[in-house]
C-alpha cells in the first residue's frame, strides 16, 4: 500500500473554506478546497489512501469520498510538487 507525505512543510493558510499553500521551492501558489486542505493537513504525517479516506469520512459526515477520488487528488498534489511517496 503506497504511503504519501508532504514534500516539505510549506507555509499554508486557511481562509474562507479555502487553503492557500506557498511552495517556496518552486515558487508556486496552490489553492485547495476545504476537504483538500483537511487532507493536506493530515499529510504532515505519512498517510495511505485508506487512512485518508477514513479520516475524511469521520470529519465530513455528510460527504461520501471514495478512495479513487482521494487518489486522484493526491496525484494532482504530486503534480503540483507538494506531495511525494513516503520512503
Amino acid at each position: 500500500m503506497a504511503r504519501y507525505v508532504q514534500k516539505s512543510s510549506y507555509e499554508s493558510t486557511h481562509l474562507d473554506n479555502e487553503w492557500i499553500i506557498l511552495n517556496t521551492d518552486d515558487y508556486t501558489v496552490t489553492k485547495l478546497n476545504d476537504i483538500g486542505g483537511f487532507c493536506w493537513s493530515l499529510l504532515e504525517a505519512e498517510q495511505t489512501l485508506e487512512s485518508l479516506t477514513q479520516a475524511v469520512g469521520r470529519e465530513y459526515l455528510e460527504t461520501k469520498v471514495s478512495e479513487r477520488e482521494i487518489e486522484e487528488f493526491l496525484s494532482q498534489l504530486m503534480e503540483c510538487g507538494l506531495v511525494k511517496y513516503a520512503v
Partner: peptide
C-alpha cells in the same frame, strides 16, 4: 466541497519570488 480538489495552481511572478529571499 464534495471531494478534495485543487482549485488553482500557479507560479508566482519572478520579481515577487525574488524578494522573498533577498
Amino acid at each position: 466541497n464534495t471531494r478534495p480538489m485543487v482549485l488553482s495552481h500557479q507560479p508566482i511572478r519572478f520579481e515577487t519570488a525574488h524578494s522573498w529571499n533577498k
